[in-house]
Each structure stands twice: as structure tokens, then as C-alpha cells.
Amino acid sequence: MDELTAVRRLREHIPAMTPEAEEAARTRLLAAVRDKPGLAAAWDKPRPARPRLRWRLAVAAALAVLVGTGIVVTRGRPDIAPVAGVRELGERAARAAERGPSPIAHPDQWYYVKELQASPARGGYGYARDLHRREIFEQWISVDGKRVAWEQGSGGLLIQGTHPGIGAAELAREPVTPETVLDRIRQALADVPEQAEFSEDQRLFQAIYQLMGEQMLPPEVRSALFRALPTIPGVTVTHDVPDADGRRGIAFSRADGWARYDLILDPSDYSFLGTYGVAVSDRTFHPVNVGPVHVKAGTPLTWSARLDIQIVDKAGERP
């Protein structure tokens, strides 16, 4: 045996890195990754903010909350074995969803949704978010999924049509399968004005996380959606994604040419935690009466944590 072989044999049987140590090191890395916002967007001369559908904020009623960077432990225990791929995540989440509660909401009622969101970045024109500032955001979504309401600073309520404009009742019509739920969402999207920056599959993915975040879907619909997600091309798994409240989850992710979005789920029961989105390439937008608006790759687009969802009788009512 030569000396190099002898050295190779020395301490050959050293124990491998434990899963806990690996998790801890990965967490430290992600904390550093998240602390650094992507490249700041380079804005043109200042213009008034243009509110966009879905990312419009409740003005003045919003409460600015400064959240520290401490990591918050998710409720429950994480699943024992790590998820290998997106199909497995879909299957596990579907099974957990099947055991979930069956909310009973009257068609005239509304869902009250309270979220913690990363605040819009100054000068961001409604596109960019500031990962270091959070605010409470409340909205009401009609149970039929067609309308959304926000409080205005003046105390009035703004109600308008929302995207994708479909509710639990339509999604839960028999038969409920991964294919039928996707078809129904596609049909609903066909009626919504197109957003040129998103491909059809990306809009489908976004519609799914929006539905999961804003409505209380019955178990069979949620599980069908979880099984449907892996069938959408480009949907992958991302591990250890924090929501805006620091709760760490597992995410379905999808990136297209312009942006990547994460649908973040609690790893113990696959309940909805929040969403995260980031631009992955440079893009220029031309909103009406404003701009051009240049959004650079790395700009955070959205970051949320759902704090509460309840059924209420009227828009504007709090539980």
C-alpha cells in the first residue's frame, strides 16, 4: 500500500452530516439569501403610483409593521422524509387536503382574508416590493369568486371584479378531477383580460395559488388542484421557503421567461402559508398614462403570509 492510499483510508468512516445539521446550515444560507433584496430596479423620473389589479393596496387602512428577521418555527412537525419531486409533493398535499375541513359558505357571503405583505417599494410603480418592510393587508372576496373588496382611506369600500373570477361552487361541480378543475380555471381565465407578460401556463399557476390563498376550497377541490399542479409544465418543488411572516414552508414553484412564483405550503399539513414572486429577467412595461416602467431581474414582485381567513356576511365586515 502506498502512502496516498494509506491517507485515503484514514478516517474513512467518519459519520456523515446529520439531516439536522444540513437543515440548519441550509437555513442559515437562506436567511442570508432572503435578507438581500434583488437588484434594485432603476426607475425613470417619479410618477404617481398606478394601482394594478391583484396588487392594489388598501390605502391608509394599512398598518405598517416592521418584522424582524428572526426565523419562526412552522406549526406542526415537518413531514419526516424529504419530498423528492413535484409529483410527490402534489400527492402528499392532496392526501392532506382530503382530510381537511369542509367549509360551508353561502353564495351571498364573503371570505375575509388578512395577510402580511411586503410593502411596495418606493418608486416601484406597483411592481416591486421592499422585502424589509411589511404591512397588514385585508381584503374580502365574494364566495362566488367574482368580486373583491378593499377598504379605502376615506372609510368607503371599493368593490370590483377579480381574477380569475371562479369560486368553490363551480370548481366543486361533479366530476372533480385534476383535469376538470384545470379546465374550469382555464375557461374562467379566457374571460379575463390578458396580461401580456404571462404565458397561459403561468396564468394558470397564478390562478391556482390565488384561489388557494383567497378562498376556502372544499377538500376534493384542493386535492384535485394539488394533483393538477405537477401536470402543468414547468412546475417544480422548492424546499424551505419562508413566507412574509418567517414561517418556513415547501413550495410549488413556476418560472417563465419573466418571473418565478412560489406557492408556499406548511410542510406539516400542506395548508396555505403565502406566496413569493421575483422577476427573473429584465422587462419594460408600458402601463397606460405612466411609464415606460423598467423592472430589472431580481426585483421582488410579491411576498405574502396569510394570517387569517374567515367567512363573513358582508364585505367590510371583520370576524
Partner: peptide, 26 residues
């Protein structure tokens, strides 16, 4: 890619962390 989308860097960890650990642990 991780220069503009820092999240992607975690994949590098997944690929190499255990090997680095083995060397450091020895």
C-alpha cells in the same frame, strides 16, 4: 443566475454540502 435571483444559490448547497462536510469532518 443566482446573481440576480439569489434563491437559486440554495441549489449549490444541495449539490455540494455533504461532500464539503465529509472533508471538513475528517
Amino acid at each position: 443566475r443566482s446573481r440576480d435571483d439569489p434563491e437559486q444559490f440554495a441549489e449549490l448547497f444541495d449539490r455540494h454540502a455533504r461532500q464539503i462536510h465529509r472533508y471538513a469532518a475528517r
